[in-house]
Design a protein around this nucleic acid. Structure first.
Lengths: 354, 354
DNA sequence: TTGTATGCGTTATCAT
DNA sequence: ATGATAACGCATACAA
C-alpha cells in the first residue's frame, strides 16, 4: 500500500507544464511536438528530476534495459572476468545486469533460469554448469532471447560465444613438444565431473560431451600429439575440479601412477598452483622437470613461481561479445556463433628440455 | 506493441477456473477462500505454469524480490566473494540480484546509482569506491533501503557491514613483532588514491578518511607499534593500487628508500605477489628477510610461494550479512552496523627472525 | 499537433 | 466469500 517512493512521473510533468501526459510521453519518445510545447516540457523537466519507471515500461512491452547473466561461480576469475566484460558492455548500452551465481549446482541453475524467465529481462546470457546432461529445456527460457557463453554447442540454434579451445590445447601441447617434452600430462577440470578419475579418461572423447571447454582443449592436445607422432597415454590424464586442492590431488594422482611426465596442461592457474605445490614437495622442479601451461586471463597466473606460461583467453572480451550478440538478438537480427581467438603467452613455467 | 512473450497471468487462471481475477489474486496471497474455490484454482494452476509478473507487482508497490549490488570491480576476488555471499543469501530468500561493477570509477558509480534508483529494486547493497570525497548524495538513492558493505561510516544512519580492520592490522603487526621483526612496512591500497606515494603517508591519518579499509588496518598497525614501543616511520609506508604491478612498484619504491624492512603488511595477496617478485629479484627472501602478512579470504593466497600468512576476512559472510541487513531494513526493522571478526591464518610467509 | 481513453498484470476497495 | 472496478506509470489508437 504505502508508496515505496514518491518519484516523479510523467503525470507530475504534465501538471507542472499544463499539458497532457500523452504529450509528455510523446516528447520523451522523440515524437514531433510543437516548439513551444517542447520548451514548456523542458522547463518542467529542468527542476523535476524525472526518470522513467522500468516496471511501467515493461508492462507496455517495451525493453527494460535489464539483461540476465547466469554463471556457475562469480568468485572464480574465469567467470568474474566474463561478468566484468558483460557489465561493461551492458553499461555502454545503458543496460543493467541481473546476475545469478549457481555455485556449480544444476538445481540452483534450474531455480535461476526459472526466476529469470519470469523476471523482466530483455534477454539472457547463460554460462551453464559444464555438464551437458540434464540441461534445462530450451522451453524453460520462454522466448527469452538467449546467448550461451564459454561453451560450445549447448543449444542448437542459439548463439554461442566461446574461446577456441581446440587451438588452445593444440598450441600449448605443440609448444611443449617443441621444447623437447614428449610426456605431457593433462588435468581436465569440471564443475560436475562426468566421471571419476578412476574411470577411463576416454570418457572425455564420447561424442555428446561437446559442450565442455575441457574437451575441446583436450582434442587440440590430442591433435598435437598425433601430429608429432607421440602416442596418447590415458595414464597422463587426470580429471579434477577447479580449485587449488583439486590441482594438488590431481598432481598426487598423476605422480602416483608412476608414468613419466615432463609437461602439463592445466585448465586454470589455481589448479596449476595446487599441482606445483605437490610437484615441489616431491622434488620435481618447474619448469625444468615439468613444464606447465595453463588456460587463463587473470593476474593470478603471475602469482605462481615461476610465472605461468598461459594460453591467453580473452574473457572480458567474451563477456562483451556475449552481450553484444544478445543485443543484436534482441534487436531481431540473425546472430551466429562467435569464436574468440587464443594465443600463447610465455612465462617462466616452460623451458627447453636439457 | 508485439507481445514479448505470452505468459500465463491470473487472468488466464481466472478463465480456466471460471472465477474472477480477484479470487485468484486472493488465493495466491493466502487470503481466505472457500475450499472448493481453492480446489478449482489449484486444478487450473496445475497445468498452467503461472508465475507472477514482477513489473506488475512493483507497480502496486509490492516487493519485486530484486536487490541491487554496486561494487568497484567484480573481477577482484575481494568483491567477487562478497558478491557470491550476497547472491547466496538472496537466493535463499527467493530474491534476484541486480549487479553493477563500476570499474573503480566515480562516474560509473553515479550512473549505476542513477540506474538502480529508477529500477524496480527492493533495496541496495552499496560498496563505494573507497574515496570518501565526492560520494553520491544520500538523496540520490531515493528512499531505496540501503546497506553499505566493506566500508565504515560512509553514510550516517545507514547500516554498514564490514571487517574489523583495526583488529586485523593490529593482529598482523603484533604477530610480526612477536617474531622479532621491528621494521614493518605497510602497503596501503586504494582504488583512487587520495594522495600519491610521494606525498606524506600521514595523509592516511586525516580524520575524514574513515571509510577506507586501508585506514582502519593502518590504525591497528600503528596501535601495535605503539604498544610495543616501536616508533612509527612513514618511510615504511607505500601507497599503491590493488594490482600485481602495483605491488611490484610499491616494493621497488620501498627498497629504494633504503630503510630497513623485515616485515610487511599488504592489503591483498595480489599486491603481495607483485611485491614478492621484486623482493626475490633483489635478493630478499620471504619469509627470512621479509615476513609478509596479507588481508585476504581467497584461494589466491595459496598461489604464492611460500603460502601467505593472512588476516582471514570473511568476505562471503560479509555478502550474506549485507543482504540480511538489507532485508531486515526492507521489512521495516531498525538495523545497526555489523562488524565481522578477523583472525590470523598462518602460512609460510612469516617466520621468526633468526 | 494535442488531449482522451484504454490496457498491460496485479492488488485493493468496494459492493454484492 | 466473491466479483466488478479503480489504480499504479506509461505508450498509443483514436478523437478533436
Amino acid at each position: 500500500m504505502k508508496k515505496r517512493t514518491l518519484r516523479v512521473t510523467i503525470k507530475d510533468i504534465a501538471a507542472a507544464s499544463g499539458l497532457s501526459i500523452a504529450s509528455i510521453s510523446r516528447f520523451l519518445n522523440g515524437l514531433p511536438v510543437r516548439a513551444d510545447t517542447a520548451a514548456r516540457i523542458e522547463a518542467a523537466l529542468a527542476h523535476l528530476d524525472y526518470s522513467p519507471n522500468a516496471a511501467a515500461l515493461y508492462m507496455k512491452g517495451r525493453a527494460t534495459g535489464i539483461v540476465g547473466l547466469i554463471l556457475p561461480e562469480i568468485s572464480h576469475p574465469f567467470f568474474s572476468l566474463i561478468a566484468e566484460g558483460a557489465i561493461e558492455e551492458a553499461r555502454k548500452n545503458d543496460q543493467l545486469l541481473l546476475l545469478s551465481s549457481t555455485e556449480g549446482s544444476r538445481e540452483n541453475e534450474r531455480i535461476a533460469v526459472d526466476q529469470f524467465a519470469r523476471s523482466m529481462l530483455d534477454g539472457l546470457v547463460y554460462i551453464p554448469v559444464s555438464n551437458p546432461a540434464d540441461l534445462p529445456a530450451l522451453e524453460s527460457f520462454k522466448d527469452l532471447p538467449l546467448v550461451v557463453a564459454g561453451r560450445v554447442g549447448v543449444f542448437p540454434g542459439v548463439p554461442h560465444v566461446y574461446s577456441d579451445g581446440d587451438k588452445g590445447g593444440y598450441l600449448a601441447a605443440k609448444y611443449l613438444i617443441g621444447l623437447g617434452r614428449r610426456n605431457i600430462g593433462f588435468f581436465g577440470s569440471f564443475w560436475e565431473a562426468p566421471c571419476t578419475t578412476s574411470e577411463l579418461p576416454e570418457a572425455l572423447l564420447t561424442p555428446n560431451s561437446g559442450s565442455y571447454s575441457t574437451i575441446h582443449r583436450f582434442k587440440g592436445y590430442l591433435r598435437a600429439l598425433r601430429e608429432e607422432g607421440i602416442p596418447y597415454d590415458p595414464a597422463r590424464v587426470v580429471i579434477c575440479g577447479y580449485g587449488y586442492t583439486n590441482g594438488a590431488e590431481a598432481a598426487r594422482e598423476l605422480l602416483g601412477r608412476a608414468v613419466p611426465v615432463d609437461g602439463l596442461l592445466a585448465m586454470t592457474s589455481i589448479v596449476a598452483g595446487g599441482g606445483m605445490e605437490v610437484f615441489r614437495g616431491q622434488g620435481r622442479s618447474v619448469p625444468e622437470d615439468i613444464s606447465i601451461i595453463v588456460f587463463d586471463d587473470s593476474e593470478i597466473m603471475n602469482m605462481a613461481v615461476p610465472r605461468l606460461t598461459s594460453v591467453q583467453l580473452h574473457l572480458r572480451r567474451m563477456g562483451v561479445e556475449a552481450v553484444r550478440s544478445l543485443n543484436r538478438l534482441i534487436a531481431g537480427e540473425e546472430v551466429g556463433d562467435t569464436m574468440l581467438d587464443v594465443s600463447l603467452k610465455l612465462g617462466g613455467s616452460t623451458r627447453s628440455r636439457t
